[in-house]
């Protein structure tokens, strides 16, 4: 039957998509030798948690985790601080908005490597290259986060009727109070979504992290090196650490993704 075929197909696609996730978890929980086995095993034969402690012994995992979280949280804060006022303005003044759009889209489309290489050279001069607190990386990640936050927030502010703000101002509220008391609460959901998305952008980011930090690494390059050095188990353990926030945020954002609000954020 045709309908049965469609349903089966949908489940088959979902199943195939789960394979990488399953293999990461499997490799993280089995000893290194099992990950090298030929033919490969699909279910764990021997379970162990030693890859997690092993990864912490092999690379500075705690520092990497701290740096990743720190840079991501700082990026969320700076990105929202830059984007909120500009997004409000762009929503209220179309002529400003279309110009801002152009600048923001340019930031979104420019190749990372063409910024990362010169930025590394500039940061060397400023003492921000390979900074132990990740300050340089934070500045670069903010550049990545701004387009997402700006576009989401501008769309949200557009949905707040200008009459509401005018009414509040007629009642004697200052523009600032109007923004904080009237507009901001109405876009809070989009603000939350933008914050989570920007967090993920920074958390997953690989290219800047590889070029701007060399001895103080965030999690993605640490994972890359563990994997490149032939430690499937240890690298999968780091991968599981990285997965947790990513999957939690996906589940939280799923309704927003469904509504199409975040589509095109193309990270």
């Amino acid at each position: 039957m045709k309908r049965r075929g469609i349903v089966l197909l949908a489940f088959a696609i979902a199943g195939v998509n789960l394979v990488p996730l399953w293999l990461v978890v499997k490799q993280a929980l089995t000893p290194e030798r099992e990950s090298f086995a030929w033919p490969p095993t699909w279910v764990p034969h021997e379970l162990t948690l030693s890859n997690f402690s092993g990864a912490a012994e092999a690379v500075p995992l705690a520092q990497g985790l701290g740096l990743s979280v720190g840079v991501a949280v700082a990026t969320v804060i700076s990105t929202l601080a830059l984007s909120l006022p500009a997004a409000w303005l762009a929503a209220r003044r179309e002529e400003v908005g279309s110009r801002l759009d152009g600048v923001v889209v340019a930031a979104r489309l420019f190749p990372t490597i063409a910024i990362a290489v010169p930025l590394a050279v500039i940061f060397v001069g400023l003492g921000l290259y390979n900074d132990s607190s990740g300050a340089g990386l934070w500045l670069a990640h903010t550049l990545l986060g701004v387009p997402f936050a700006f576009l989401i927030l501008r769309a949200a502010f557009r949905g707040v009727p200008a009459e509401l703000e005018d009414a509040a101002q007629l009642d004697g509220a200052s523009p600032w109070m109007t923004f904080v008391r009237v507009s901001l609460p109405l876009v809070r959901p989009s603000l939350g979504a933008a914050a989570m998305l920007v967090f993920l952008v920074s958390w997953d980011e690989f290219a800047y992290a590889l070029l701007l930090q060399v001895t103080h690494r965030t999690l993605p390059p640490l994972l890359f090196y563990l994997s490149a050095f032939g430690y499937p188990g240890l690298s999968s353990a780091v991968a599981v650490l990285m997965l947790v926030p990513a999957v939690v945020i996906l589940l939280l954002l799923e309704p927003a993704l469904r509504s199409g609000v975040l589509a095109g954020s193309g990270r």
Partner: peptide, 29 residues
């Protein structure tokens, strides 16, 4: 405009219909 395609449903209230938001905000906090 690009952003119109990037956000096919250019309707912020779609998100306000998102009832679980409170929970989300708390977790985010």
């Amino acid at each position: 405009m690009l952003s119109n395609y990037a956000f096919p449903h250019d309707d912020p209230f779609v998100l306000t219909r998102w009832h679980s938001f409170r929970r989300v905000a708390r977790m985010w906090g």
